[in-house]
Amino acid sequence: MDSDLRDFILRRVVQIPVVLFLVSVIVFYIIHLPEGGPEALLSGQAGDEAIREFRDRYNLNEPLYVQYLLWIQGILTGSLGTSITTNQPVASLIASRLPVTLMLGFFSVAISVMIAVPAGYISAVEQYTWKDHTATVLAFVGLSIPNFFLAILLIKLFSVELGWLPITASGQMFSDWSLTLKSMVLPSLALGTALAAHVTRILRSSMLDIYSEEYVHVARAKGLPEKMVNRSIVFKNALIPVITIVMLQMGYVLGATVIIEEVFAMPGLGRLMLNSVVGRDYPVMQAVVLLYATAYLVFNLIADVAYGLVDPRIKYGGEH
């Protein structure tokens, strides 16, 4: 690793806290912006005494910037506050919901790569054949179908009609592993299809780009069999843009967990986030949103590094 690249990575790592700081300010102020503040949630169902107690408990009588600093102090000391609706510590809520979302994310990406790699490869190697056209049309459909509608189509076909797969593992999540894994198939497919479509297109176009590179012509001129050219030269070199795109698309994956977990009633972070939005449980919402943003920033960092490691044309000279 040359020093340019190291500096670049370092600079990006240093940027993350800065962006996170801004993100935390934005989240905090959006939530505390409305008239009446977060305790508007309680009004109507609670008396003055309860509201006063609530304001004390969540420091709502302090000036806004003090509340913000208290929140940040809490995060830095490992305390994320307590949920308004369930009274549980936010940290333990997140810890209990995290495994489901991690598993959903992992399987979604895995399924999409398993679909996209063969589809994109064939599309590029057999450009303009019926196979390529089919893959292209399917990819466009995959990009256009709302993931929650695809989820419903899958449930109708595989659960309601055929009865092959469960819609949800309900209470058996992580205790009955066979059921847990089966219950992951439909959500992962519903979430991963759009990603698969995207990756298919990227793999195809980056492979086609590489076919026009000089080293491919040289390899062919030297008599390397076409299959070898396709596999060990073109495909291998096309993988890096694909990895980058997968990392950048993690934004879609993270956002989609909210929708897919809701459709399949999965006890994950996305559903925790949605419930906190609906119930205006702001300590939970703040924490989960910050977690999502952190994860996304890390994926972006990986994408940049992967991109930089491979493309020597890139200079890390700083701002353009």
Partner: peptide
Amino acid sequence: LAFPGIILALVIMSV
């Protein structure tokens, strides 16, 4: 841009 997917829209809708 650091908010992934529809998360930002969700937070705004909550308010």
